[in-house]
């Protein structure tokens, strides 16, 4: 039976059931610092990131943010190119659903992220490496929370297989010298 506390906590802890499933699989490498690309909407996430800064909230330095005029500008290829270049995770941060400055840009972005997850599955990569989050420009704390959650998620998943493959030849080059 779900008591009151669990029901109240449920919307906040969207990620917790997954984290419970993931954790036993592989140990987290304490030295692994993921590289995460964030495609942030100018009207919400970017402003929320600013607010998080003004509020002096701590969030991981792993995220690199690219500003978009709207997450509707986000294309599937942008997510794939980020992963191909070696990003460990990519997420889009758009306005709350129903509050897009361009009406439906964030809904399009969500569809594209969901489709990209399918492509990743086909490629044998964890679909959790891409995600779509929604927030308003007043959501400084939520911006920091999402950045923390996603970084934790990627730390659990470990380095991107693309990046590992990239590093391997580099190490070989380094050794003979």
């Amino acid at each position: 039976m779900a008591d009151e506390t669990t029901t109240a906590a449920a919307p906040e802890a969207v990620e917790s059931p997954e984290s419970a499933n993931e954790e036993p699989q592989k140990p987290i490498d304490p030295d692994f610092e993921p590289e995460i690309i964030v495609f942030g909407c100018h009207y919400c996430a970017y402003a929320a990131a600013d607010l998080a800064g003004s509020m002096r909230l701590q969030y991981p330095t792993n995220i690199r943010m690219i500003k978009l005029p709207c997450t509707g500008k986000l294309e599937i290829i942008h997510l794939l190119k980020a992963l191909e270049a070696g990003a460990d995770g990519v997420y889009a941060a758009g306005c709350l659903e129903g509050e897009c400055h361009y009406l439906k840009g964030n809904l399009w972005a969500r569809k594209r992220v969901e489709y990209t997850k399918k492509l990743l599955e086909e490629m044998g990569m964890e679909p959790e490496r891409v995600e779509m989050f929604n927030m308003s420009s007043a959501d400084g704390p939520l911006f920091a929370q999402r950045a923390n959650e996603f970084t934790e998620r990627i730390k659990r998943l470990g380095p991107s297989p693309v990046k590992q493959a990239k590093k391997a030849p580099a190490a070989k080059e380094g050794t003979p010298a």
Binding site: L80, E84, V162, K166
Partner: peptide, 15 residues
């Protein structure tokens, strides 16, 4: 371009 990116990622994954 999407298919080319997919093939490239898959190849990198597989080494």
């Amino acid at each position: 371009e999407i298919l080319a990116a997919e093939l490239s990622i898959k190849a990198k994954e597989d080494g």
